[in-house]
Design a protein around this nucleic acid. Structure first.
Lengths: 195, 195
DNA sequence: AGCCTAGTGCAACTGGAGTTGCACTCCGAG
DNA sequence: CTCGGAGTGCAACTCCAGTTGCACTAGGCT
């Protein structure tokens, strides 16, 4: 464990491997990430990678943790502004091939290994849970009916973007984001997500 | 090509392989489908499979074509009824592990090979296009504002289901389907998808 | 009937992912 | 400083997906 030797070689190897994994991911896309390539780039032997992480998926998941963790909930003053910030960030992420590689890798990984499924589930549970504040504030301000399920509003906002990117494989632009926000707001205002 | 000898061995091999591929897919899930396993089950040599289809993904895509093609657009008399039929069919498909394997395989395949991406895109373009009648009828009946984009309504209806199944990995039930329909209808009624 | 060839079967090969046993290095505790 | 052991490097191995060259079978055509 790295905990036993936090300042030593183990930690250097760990950092080097995670950094290399991230670079490989961005370069080659989720298909090209290989233990051997990562090992080469990190100047670490592949045996070490297998021993510490077991699978490429696990390595990638850990490599992505810091990137995914640092995410700030928007606070623009209005619900529409907050939701648009969230939706637009999604669209921009998926528009940039480099940024897109990261969420894509996780979703793909989840299709293959059960542990990655769990990682994905907890990640989105956490992020949706954190973003829920945005809707709760709106309910307090009286912008939405009392009893509105915050997470449902967020799901409705993000779902069309994900649908196009991962399922129907349609292009996404800012108009998609705006329409998704409008739709979510209309449904929420109508009380669909309340009770 | 099988066209050159439509009644002969080539066609028998083709049918046998596609059938075996489908069975393998349902049995083992998308992970377990291997050219060798399919070859074994179909009593066809794996070399033949590689020569005819090239990759497992291509084989699976072709094996799924007939299943995916036979799909009837619902016509219950009301838009809500039609959309609920569509959404509930999705939910039921994903609830059944056997049925779920099929769309899952295609989505996973699309993450890996470019040709599968194209297959997925055209499939959903076709299905959304065919289902659009449901909304067009509703517009004619005056249930929705004129100028409503039919496909947008369908996307809004299906997106939350796909989001939970493939992205956030949350369980789906019929309540999810109903709420998605309600949300899509509320947004459409508010004119979000018109103009 | 008999030829012609596309399509298939077969076996051996390639290549890369993942594993294993062993030697060695280096951190940290005493 | 030195010693123990966790962690790492290394090389050789297994295993399986995918490839290739060759023989041959079987369907269509004259």
């Amino acid at each position: 464990m790295s905990a036993s030797r936090p300042g030593g070689r183990t930690e250097r190897v760990r950092r080097s491997a995670l950094e290399a994994a991230l670079e490989e991911l961005i370069d080659k896309g989720f298909t090209g990430v290989t233990m051997e390539n990562v090992a080469l780039r990190a100047s670490v032997h592949k045996t070490t990678l297998y021993r510490r992480w077991g699978t490429v998926q696990a390595l990638i998941v850990e490599a992505l943790e810091p990137t995914l963790a640092r995410w700030a909930v928007p606070d623009t003053g209005s619900l529409r502004g907050d939701l648009e910030a969230i939706a637009l960030e999604l669209v921009r992420t998926f528009a940039d091939p480099e940024l897109r590689a990261i969420p894509e890798a996780v979703v793909v990984g989840a299709m293959r290994s059960a542990d990655t499924v769990e990682a994905l589930r907890t990640f989105y549970a956490d992020r949706l849970g954190r973003a829920a504040v945005v809707v709760r504030r709106a309910v307090e301000r009286g912008e939405l009916p009392a009893g509105t399920d915050p997470v449902e509003v967020l799901r409705a906002t993000c779902a069309p973007v994900f649908l196009r990117v991962f399922i129907t494989r349609e292009p996404v632009d800012e108009a998609v984001a705006h329409r998704a926000v409008d739709a979510a707001l209309a449904a929420a205002a109508a009380g669909v997500f309340a009770g």
